[in-house]
Structures are given as C-alpha cells and as structure tokens.
Design a protein around this nucleic acid. Structure first.
Ligand SMILES: [Mn+2]
Ligand SMILES: [Mn+2]
Ligand SMILES: [Mn+2]
Ligand SMILES: [Mn+2]
Lengths: 218, 218
DNA sequence: ATAATTTTTTAGACAAGTCTAAATTTTAAT
DNA sequence: ATTAAAATTTAGACTTGTCTAAAAAATTAT
C-alpha cells in the first residue's frame, strides 16, 4: 500500500530525475514539493524501507524499478484524468491540473483501464504531455522550443513547458492552442523577442513566451 | 476544510439518523464504520467543534444543517460516480461501490456539476437509490419491499436494500435487474418464501431475498 | 432502591506526516 | 589544509486519526 503522500514524493523524484535516471537531492525535492528538507529526509527513509527508492545518506535518492513504475502510473492517471476533464466535462486546459492532482490517487486498475478505453487511448494530455502506457513507457517525441526557431520558419504548437494557469490563459487570449500553426516572422537578436504570424494575426512575444512553447517543424 | 474521515463519519450519521432527523448513538456509528466507540467520541468532538453536529455528552449526536449538507453532497457525489462507472465505463453494479467510496471525496464543485450534466442529470444510481440535488433534497419515491406483496400481484424492481456484491450477483444470476417486471405467483405463509415469474422463467426465493428488493406496483 | 450491565467517555499510547532548531556532513572558498 | 558556507540529517515536538484499558454515566434487572 502506497499512500497519497508517498505517491506525490515519487512523482516529484521522477520529474526531477529526468524520468528516473539521475539521482536527486533532498533540497530539490523540498523545493519542488514546497516542504522542508527534514520532512523529505523522513519520507525518503520510508520510501527506502519500501524499496521504492535507493538511498544512501547525504548522497541523494534515485527511484528503484518499482518506484519508477509507481511514479509513471500516477502520471498516467493524472494525464488521463486531464484528458477526461477537457474532452468530456468541458474543462479548459488551465483548470484541470488541480482536480487531476486529486484524481491521480484513486486506486483501481479497472477504473484506469476503462477510462483509457473510454477516451479512446489518448497519447497526450491537454498540455501536450505524453501519456505513458501501463508499463510506464513513454512514446518519445522530437519536440523543440519555439525560441530555437529562426526567422521565416513555420511550426506547429504541440505542448507547453510552463503549464501555469497564467501562461495557459495568455495563450488562450492570443489564440494559441495545441495544433496551431505558427510562423516566425522576425526575431530580435537583442532580446530574442519574436513576431509571429498566427492565422491572419500578427503577435509580438517575449523570450519568456517562446521559451515555454513546444513546437515541431512543419 | 472537511477531511475524508470527517466526511465518512457525517455520511454514516446521516444514514443512521434516517436522513438526518433523529439522533444517533456512539455505538451505532462505531458498528457501522467498523471502528471503536472511543474513536467515534473523539471524532464527534471534532465535528462538533466545526459545527457539523450537535452533541451533548452521553446524549448521542445529530447533524446540523451544515453537517447535513456536507453529508448529502458526499452521497450525491458517490451516486453520480456510480452512474458514471456503470453507464460510461462498463462497470457492473456490484463493482462500483468500492471505487465510489474513493471518488466521493474529490473536491471540486465544477467537477460534480459537469459530471451531472455529462450523465444527463440522472435521478437514481445503479442500485435504485435517489441522487440528491445540490441542496441535498431527495425526490421522495413510494417504494415498497417485494416481501410486502400478496399472491397474484405484479411489480417492477426499482432498487435493492442490500447492495452487497453477493446479493447483486445473485440477482444477476437470476435475471433480476432494475426495471424487471416481477409477478408473485405464490407465497408461503410458513416461511414467507415466494415463487416469482420473471419474463418466461419461474423462480423460488426466500424471505431473505424478498426483504431486500424494492419494488413499485405495476 | 440497589445492584448488575451496557454505553459512553477519558487517559494514555502509537503511526503518519509535518515542522523547528540543532548537529553533522559535504562542498566551496581562502 | 583550514575555514566558511551550504546541504543534509537528527532530535524533539505537534496534529490527525486510531487503538486499549480504565473510569464514569446511563440503562436495565432484581
Ligand atoms: Mn497536470
Ligand atoms: Mn498536463
Ligand atoms: Mn455505493
Ligand atoms: Mn449505490
């Protein structure tokens, strides 16, 4: 039995360790989870006791295979629920995360299998993040940041790096959604700001924005 | 903020008090929740502190208006999720309760409103129990037990009193579902066992069964 | 009316998860 | 190589929800 809290720690470690490969520091976890380093140490000991992480004092933690699978299962549930909320319950993409944080902890294998089928086996969540399969495997996608494009290039928006409500609402306001075709009209060398063409409209964006939009070449 | 545990206690009190009217004993709550009387006393004090129940030592508890609304909201969520599981995710009626026990605690008013709409505002859950509205009002239905019928009478199955998997699977096995038309062919005065006619089939049932099936006259 | 029984509450303990403050170890700087 | 700074762990405390055992109150039986 894995508790809600343990699941949240595993998820944080997974994300911080870039899919469970590298080892993660206590402080990094504390910062990400908005908690204290001492609480992290306590929890790490419990996770280690349950063989969900490998831990040696002062050396950081990494996920075991079992811990990795637990983490990816939670991520799978989180993203499937996000798809459900957007596709079936008319939530907008900036409203789903908070609710999915709760739903991701519901325990029922049948529930998640049936939900997956009901949603017709989606491959990505509403923010463009890939949904792992039951074994925790992600389909690798070749995505790049909009900021990496040069003048004149065209691309399709396929995801967001920052999925805060503020950023998502900014994108809504300027008609940028997943699937939107974007052309880089010009790019300033000074501050890396860009002028984009989206449909018939022209939009000036900062590096802040181009650095948080994932695109693929068109 | 109401915790999962508090919600479960309020729900238990609600059910034991027949929709929140009468006052409920500590022992009754303990028995229903499969916990100890001392734990119940502890929790009652917390609920009382939050003005969710009225409590005087040794006198039992009753729900306040606020407690009643919290309880009916949880019941509303439980039953809507059960409908979702059966109607959309192909669960059978004997599989949904356990998962709904988890889902009922998810906090999001928008979620439940949208789910209600998505399910097209169902009035009853898969076991025939009524779904309260947002204000906690139930539509009163005039249901009776099959055991109350006399020989020769015909009725429609509209609910179950016992919703254990065992009973529900028994009903499945004998082709009894909500909406099934049942005719009482004969009734023994000795043990109140009955012979039923269901579609073309004849079925002998014990008082145990007839006492747990809600029907309405046809 | 008193005694026996049952119900309910209190007292004290424990596990989970968190915190603050202090101690320890590691890392970076001189 | 020492010293200073940063990161990490430990010690002790607190909250929530639970338990057992004992005390107190209410109910039932004699
Ligand atoms: Mn999310
Ligand atoms: Mn997402
Ligand atoms: Mn149920
Ligand atoms: Mn039900």
């Amino acid at each position: 039995m894995v508790t809600f809290s343990e699941e949240n720690y595993l998820k944080a470690i997974y994300h911080l360790s870039k899919h469970g490969s590298v080892s993660v520091s206590t402080n990094a976890i504390a910062q990400r989870m908005d908690t204290k380093a001492s609480s992290v140490t306590d929890m790490i000991k419990k996770l280690s006791e349950k063989d969900l992480v490998d831990y040696k004092k002062y050396q950081g933690v990494s996920l075991t295979e079992s811990g990795r699978l637990t983490a990816t299962t939670v991520i799978r549930k989180h993203r499937l629920w996000e798809v459900f909320l957007v596709d079936k319950l008319n939530f907008s993409w900036d409203e789903v995360h908070e609710v999915a944080e709760q739903l991701e902890h519901i325990k029922s294998e049948k529930l998640i299998d049936q939900l997956d089928a009901f949603l017709e086996f989606p491959t990505h969540d509403p923010h463009g993040d890939p949904i792992p399969d039951k074994q925790g495997n992600f389909k690798k996608t070749e995505k790049m940041l909009l900021s990496q494009l040069a003048e004149g290039e065209t691309c399709i928006c396929i995801g967001v790096k920052d999925s805060s409500s503020e950023f998502l609402q900014y994108l809504d306001k300027h008609q940028i959604a997943l699937g939107t075709i974007i052309k880089v009209v010009s790019k300033e060398t000074f501050d890396e700001s860009m002028t984009l063409q989206i449909n018939a409209e022209v939009l000036a964006i900062s590096k802040e924005v181009s650095n948080n939009l994932f695109v693929k070449a068109n």
